[in-house]
Design a protein around this nucleic acid. Structure first.
Length: 420
RNA sequence: GGAGGAAUAGCGAAGUGGUCAUAACGCGGCGGUCUUGAAAACCGUUUGACUGAAAGGUCGCGGGGGUUCGAAUCCCUCUUCCUCCGCCA
């Protein structure tokens, strides 16, 4: 949520900044509604001040055992007016909020301006994709062949876009989760294991709702949603809290299963582990002072990259242009891993700074020693998507005989260096 | 799932319709006096949001709603916590 006062005072600038995202937003409407709000506020507060004064008079008269019925009757009338104004006020406030909640974050000034993913800027690449002397198999074929992926039976249990991992596949998946968490713990992150069911307020806080309700699974007859990412529970961990400045930055890492309806993805990436309704992910979440948040974004991205470096997987990092960034983000780096069967890079992590967009929604502040308080900046990124990582390992580490070499760092976790 | 109790400042806690919540009292924090330094003692200080050019005003006693001229206090509702019972991994 943007700062309404900032919108009102910097209308042109906000308009231009949002235009780089390629959308149009009713900012003028906000300005006029805000004017209306303040007009009502002024009138109703004056009346309330009067009421407070008169109430004191009533108390005084009663104490002196005098008659107060005249001014009480007068106040009854004033109260009717107050009630009307108050109702009008909450209506205007709701209208403003409805609009503001639909407006995306302002891109950071350093972000590349562009329309679509074609305008994203590749920042760096790590390792060259390997050239196979044979035709590499896609992970779903090799996985089924080795009996470590069972997509058909997953469909029996639940439906399409679900997977079952088995034997070394299951072990490898569990190993990846532990390896990722262990690595982040070594680099200053605190481990969080949150609930997978999330209430509406939390989903709204981090921006999944109200705009993207169709992307989430709702639990029938409850107020709960299945977590689409650990970002939601972990960011909301500090909702309505004030953090002493010397505690910043706060670094959390969390493993959760993630659940996504993939409503708009019919026919895309239908095979294998790439686009499924339930997947595992290790997430990184940071809370930082505003002047440090861009620096922390670089660190967070490096922390996510570290996983791929240690796994020795080829990847690249792109900065998303204004037109391709997510709704709440002010700057985003995507990390993409090389997927031989696709013959292209596939997103495996998305690292974003949200400035105070989320913290204003969910009221997370920090307080300096001098007693000044302001909204913190929130950041998060996958550290990294486990399912896609598993797919990348299967494909990039496959051998001609249909076996898979286990990445060196995972050997202690799985107890073998080859899967066959 | 059933029965009862509770929620007030950083913490504990008083206040149960109108001389006051810039909230008694205690602890903690911060500043100071004293001290070579520290402790103790003493003195002072210690919420946030909105609105307004300012003076000022409004709101905030877990959240929301209601009664009243006036609500921390009465009523409804939701949430969380505690105690007991039942069930359970």
């Amino acid at each position: 949520m943007l700062d309404i006062r900032y919108i009102v005072n910097n209308l042109k600038e906000v308009q231009n900044a949002l235009a780089t995202r390629g959308g149009e937003y009713p900012l003028g409407k906000i300005v006029s509604l805000d004017k209306k709000r303040r007009d009502i506020l002024q009138e109703v507060e004056q009346l309330k001040a009067k009421r407070n004064t008169v109430s004191e008079e009533v108390a005084k008269l009663k104490r002196e055992k005098k008659d107060a019925s005249a001014i009480i009757a007068q106040m009854q009338e004033v109260n009717v007016r107050i009630k009307t104004l108050d109702d009008g006020l909450s209506e205007v406030e709701k209208d403003i909020k409805d609009i503001v909640l639909g407006i995306p974050n302002i891109p950071h000034s350093s972000v590349v301006i562009g329309k679509s993913d074609e305008d994203n800027k590749v920042e760096r690449e790590h390792l060259k994709p390997a050239k196979f002397k044979f035709t590499p198999l896609p992970h779903w074929e090799l996985g089924e062949q080795l009996g470590i992926l069972d997509i058909e039976r997953a469909a029996k249990i639940t439906g399409s876009r679900f997977v079952v991992t088995r034997k070394m596949g299951a072990t490898l998946e569990r190993a990846l989760i532990n390896f990722m968490l262990d690595t982040h713990l070594k680099h200053g992150y605190e481990e969080i294991f949150p609930p997978f069911l999330i209430n509406r307020e939390s989903m709204t806080g981090t921006g999944q709702l109200p705009k993207f309700e169709e992307d989430a699974f709702a639990v029938k007859d409850t107020n709960y949603f299945l977590a689409p990412t650990a970002e939601v529970p972990v960011t909301n961990l500090l909702r309505n809290e004030v953090i002493p400045e010397d505690k910043l930055p706060i670094n959390y890492t969390a493993y959760t299963a993630c659940f996504r309806a993939e409503a708009g993805a019919a026919g895309r990436d239908t095979r294998g582990l790439i686009r499924v309704h339930q997947f595992n992910k290790v997430e990184l979440v940071k809370f930082a002072a505003p002047e440090k948040s861009m620096e922390e974004l670089e660190k967070l991205t490096a922390d996510a990259e570290r996983i791929l470096k240690l796994l020795e997987l080829p990847y690249r990092v792109s900065q998303l242009c204004t037109g391709d960034m997510g709704f709440s983000s002010c700057k985003t780096y995507d990390i993409e891993v090389w997927m031989p069967s696709y013959e292209r890079y596939v997103e495996i992590s998305s690292c974003s700074c949200f400035s105070d967009f989320q913290s204003r929604r969910i009221n997370i502040k920090y307080k300096t020693k001098e007693g000044k308080s302001a909204f913190v900046h929130t950041l998060n990124g996958s550290g990294i998507a486990v399912g896609r990582c598993l797919a990348a390992i299967i494909e990039n580490y496959q051998n001609e005989d249909g076996s898979i070499t286990v990445p060196k760092v995972l050997v202690p976790y799985v107890g073998t260096n080859i899967i066959k």
